[in-house]
Design a protein around this nucleic acid. Structure first.
Lengths: 350, 350
DNA sequence: ATGAAAGCGCTAACAC
DNA sequence: GTGTTAGCGCTTTCAT
């Protein structure tokens, strides 16, 4: 059984291949009668055009790519990514465009991946986890692959960009903590070469005006724990810590409790990303939600435009919302009776 | 600037296209000298073979596909999926195989997607979220697309299958609750046409021996909440509820608390999937971890085999581990002093 | 061990 | 409005 091709459909419909092709693409006027004959024949033979043949003929892959150079552990625990992908898909789906996902172990593999993608596998790429002076930006420029940068990339790039304002929520949290009487406020950031980590850290330093206490983490639970330990061991230890994601915040929370500290009474804690479970922790975690799906939709739209030849443009998706919850509640801000400090299940060795 | 092709490389190396092709694929003996000349030329011109041309010539896409017919909300809150994908990628990456991800809104779109995939876009597919008598199984058979079923599919399929034993952890949890004195134990399942939901529900009913109290949810927080409300309103309400995922369990937990119940004192709760934050909730949630990455790796391996023409086979990945945590602790099993019931932030209207 | 040439299944000029 | 034909960039017989 040899698979059915456009030639079979043409024969079945009594027309030529060109007519079949145009009947489907609408790329040239076709009489209604011919079109329906063709459609009927295609239906009868259960024919679907071959993507690879079409891709070769048009140099269009009808696919876009996301290459991830992350550690599997980080991917598994990340609440941003799945929602972002869902957003991307929601605009891709109606256009029959596929999403190619590639996870690579190192930079050499990542570069190979982009080169291969640009040679017939994908029509464009979405760049996540941007770093300052990201080497991928010039590479993709050279490869001439339409690209959308997801994140606040500030160097010139010639690409479209989906940004969010990460500074505002940081300022808002710091201001609230200050108002609640916190003076010593620390920040556990993500890797500072990531533009979003950097933006948050800069906003924090700025808001603290010289009196900042910054530690650079890597978004993993273990770094959250280690850096919290470091901060709490300080002679003049902070009474509040802002973490750059929820995973680190929760690790920090666990550590603080293991030391017999009560959150938020002895230590106020806030996260970032608002994992769907964070509101259910106890104490519920103050965090910043940022609608990753909306960013995915914007990125996919911009990429489609770019592939179609539109000028690059930057879109600001403003979706950051701070959710103040129990983990930053102060005695001052709430009547103590209504929110008693959670009992400490002390894990200190007796 | 027209992109460089195999012909350019051949010219540069002073050989023919065929030689270039074979120098890279190793499909026929080549003198070491010629090969290195070719490789050098390719390197010099920064040439990477076109995937679409290669796909057309070999009818090999070098890609596999996962089609998801889920609601975006469910995708975003699912802890299984990202880890599973990371596992898949870890075996795909070294083979330069791409993963195509497609999210579709309805059955018609899903069927079209599979037809299109089988026509040159992908060499195989991974089937998730299996249902009993899943219509996709015969479709993929007819399309002749190598496929791996991820889940305990029991009908004949002719495909490879990655299974896990979901009954065992359910039995283990029920037994433990029984031993702790619970008599009225309910189960909030996922949709019962999913094979994994069904397997868990069957195991539950079986373990309860006639005295079961089953409600069918849909894995969303809202269904978890609604069904918990229903169960707690029963005259003879359960003292323990097993949920088929963590999201529903946590929604149930919140609801119970909102009603002034204490978990686990008044109601024991267990989840499934062991979200990475579940251990950090308060009370920490009893749940079942199942190493989705291991299943992803197994599925990808099996699919590669199948594409290469191997006979279908079933692999049992046994990775389910029950983590008993505070949410199912009974007074009997722990001295009350060491794990005081969490204080109720009562949300009842006064 | 290498070269020449015929496709893979489509699309897009170019005719008419 | 429809047919003819020449590619798209590879791989793979078939020769040599």
């Amino acid at each position: 059984m040899t698979r059915t091709t456009i030639a079979d459909v043409a024969r079945e419909a009594g027309v030529t291949k060109a007519t079949v092709s145009h009947a489907l693409s609408g790329n040239r006027p076709i009489s209604d009668e011919t079109r329906s004959k063709v459609l009927a024949a295609a239906e009868r033979l259960n024919w679907v055009p071959s993507q690879s043949a079409r891709a070769l003929a048009t140099s269009r892959a009808n696919a876009i790519a996301v290459v991830l150079a992350r550690d599997p552990e980080v991917i598994a625990n990340d609440s941003f990514f799945p929602a972002f992908i869902a957003g991307v898909e929601s605009v891709l789906a109606p256009t029959e465009t596929a999403l190619i996902l590639q996870v690579v172990p190192d930079r050499a593999a990542e570069e190979r991946a982009y080169r291969a993608l640009s040679r017939g596998r994908a029509d464009g790429a979405l760049l996540l986890d941007l770093r300052t002076d990201d080497w991928r930006v010039p590479l993709l420029g050279e490869l001439n692959l339409p690209t959308v940068l997801v994140g606040a990339y500030d160097q010139p790039s010639g690409f479209s960009c989906v940004r969010t304002d990460d500074a505002a929520p940081v300022r808002e949290i710091v201001a609230r903590l200050r108002a609640d009487g916190h003076e010593r406020i620390a920040h556990v950031s993500g890797p500072l070469d990531y533009v979003h980590s950097k933006a948050r850290a800069d906003a924090y330093v700025d808001a603290m005006g010289g009196d900042s206490l910054l530690r650079e983490g890597d978004f993993t639970a273990s770094s959250g724990r280690a850096l919290t330990a470091e901060l709490l061991a300080l002679p003049d230890r902070p009474s509040a810590i802002l973490y750059s994601n929820d995973t680190m915040a929760i690790a920090g929370l666990s550590y603080a409790r293991s030391q017999g500290l009560s959150v938020p009474r002895d230590l106020a804690i806030s996260g970032f990303d608002d994992d769907h479970l964070s509101a259910h922790l106890s104490p519920a975690l103050t965090s910043v939600s940022s609608d990753p799906a909306a960013r995915g939709r914007a990125a996919a739209r911009l990429l489609r435009e770019g592939i179609l030849g539109a000028e690059p443009r930057t879109e600001l998706v403003d979706c950051n919302v701070v959710h103040f919850r129990e983990s930053t509640e102060s005695a001052a801000s709430t009547p103590p009776a209504s929110t008693p400090a959670p009992p400490e299940v002390s894990r200190r060795t007796p």
